[in-house]
Write a protein that binds this DNA or RNA. Structure first.
Lengths: 222, 222
DNA sequence: CGCGGGATGCAAAAAATATTGATAGTGGAC
DNA sequence: GTCCACTATCAATATTTTTTGCATCCCGCG
């Protein structure tokens, strides 16, 4: 079941959306402000966030930015008519769709479905990513560094892909070992270090994207 | 590179779309009104036109009609909410998609990609392809290497065609076996390797187009 | 300032994987 | 039935990758 996080300061609006969303077979969580929305996204994996712009504490824009930094979750923004249209065009915001209040719940759900199906639809699961001159093409299993192809070993691919898919999230050695090597791997932690080192050596100028978190593990910084 | 013509009277909107489009790897031209849009279409071949409806001089509808008369280019229309919605569905306008303002640029690009891949789908599923001196004619079941016909066995054809149809995508041995040999094939992985070897031997200088992906399988590199 | 627990680098051993050529099985054409 | 091209399997070889142990380095902390 796909889960949606509804963020709006008005309980009434949340309730309406919830009702429709549940009717459409989605699981629903709620948050009343941007801050707690971000917090919830940290602890739970949502498939979609519906985010009001005007909110106390932490507005929708800021929340959106934070959430997108955390994970690549689709976001639909809600706004009152005429409210800060322009900002939506901000390049870095990455909003997936936009619905003007007052909206009909039916229309909102149509958009939710549209966005989700676009994502889930085979290719567009953002499997080809670029960070400056670092291009990562997962389907093709190829990585280019400033236009030059990097030759990675299988484990290096897996490691990189894994870190990128979980970008900006600290991954402990334990988690890396069990997720990439398999839960039944009996081996040394140093193994990871070595692979990280090898991987870094292949990323040239972008080696520092893989950040060491002392005492914890690693993360890919986007 | 695919080229898009963006037509809107507001420079700001054009700029936003341009930014996104270029980010997505498209080439971009702009026009501020319907008249110059048609003119540009006459002199240059675009792969897509994004057309605002409400414009001075020559509105989007008229421009669309003119352009469609000239060439069969996909058109995506932009419209303000509620603005002449109906007409879009009407008649022979042949609009490929439409997006309601305010829209998120991301959504617009998703639609652009969708329309283009829908169109290009037919094309890229082209059954006669050439990579340098390697010509692959699927319907004719013939492959020529630098003008000389290569004699392939049935399995070699299938393998090559399959890889080419999925060019630049890593294909695991599992997938190859189940897609080419059939899901019920009970056999050895090495079988594939051998056929790959035979195939490569028949591709002369282009043998390296079939790239080994250690630990995974193979891919055809275009 | 020195200590200690990671983090890193290196190189060799060990393991995994791909390539290749030889070989045998298969089914159709004659 | 025999021949033949094609296919599958196998085993030896070649290649690459992974792991590991150790030496060294670095950073935060007392």
């Amino acid at each position: 079941m796909q889960k949606i996080l509804i963020v709006d300061d008005e309980a009434k609006i949340r309730a309406v959306i919830r009702e429709y969303a549940e009717f459409n077979g989605y699981g629903v969580s709620e948050a009343a402000d941007g801050m707690s929305a971000v917090a919830k996204c940290k602890e739970e994996n949502f498939d979609m966030v519906i985010l009001d712009i005007m909110m106390p504490k932490f507005d929708g824009f800021s929340a959106c930015k934070e959430i997108k930094k955390l994970k690549d979750i689709p976001v639909i923004m809600l706004s009152a008519r005429g409210e800060e249209y322009d900002k939506l065009f901000g390049f870095e915001l990455g909003v997936d769709d936009y619905v003007v209040k007052p909206f009909s719940p039916k229309e909102l759900m149509a958009r939710v479905n549209a966005v989700l199906s676009r994502r889930g639809g085979a290719e567009s699961r953002a499997e080809v990513l670029a960070f400056d001159g670092l291009e990562i093409d997962m389907p093709a299993r190829s990585v280019t560094v400033d236009g030059k192809k990097a030759e990675l070993t299988p484990k290096e691919y897996e490691l990189l892909f894994y870190l990128v898919r979980n970008k900006n999230i600290a991954m402990s050695r334990d988690k890396l070992l069990s997720d990439i090597w398999g839960y039944d791997f009996f081996g040394d932690d140093r193994t990871i270090d070595t692979h990280i080192k090898n991987l870094r050596n292949n990323l040239g100028p972008y080696r520092s994207r893989i950040v060491t978190l002392r005492g914890v593990g690693y993360k890919f910084e986007a």
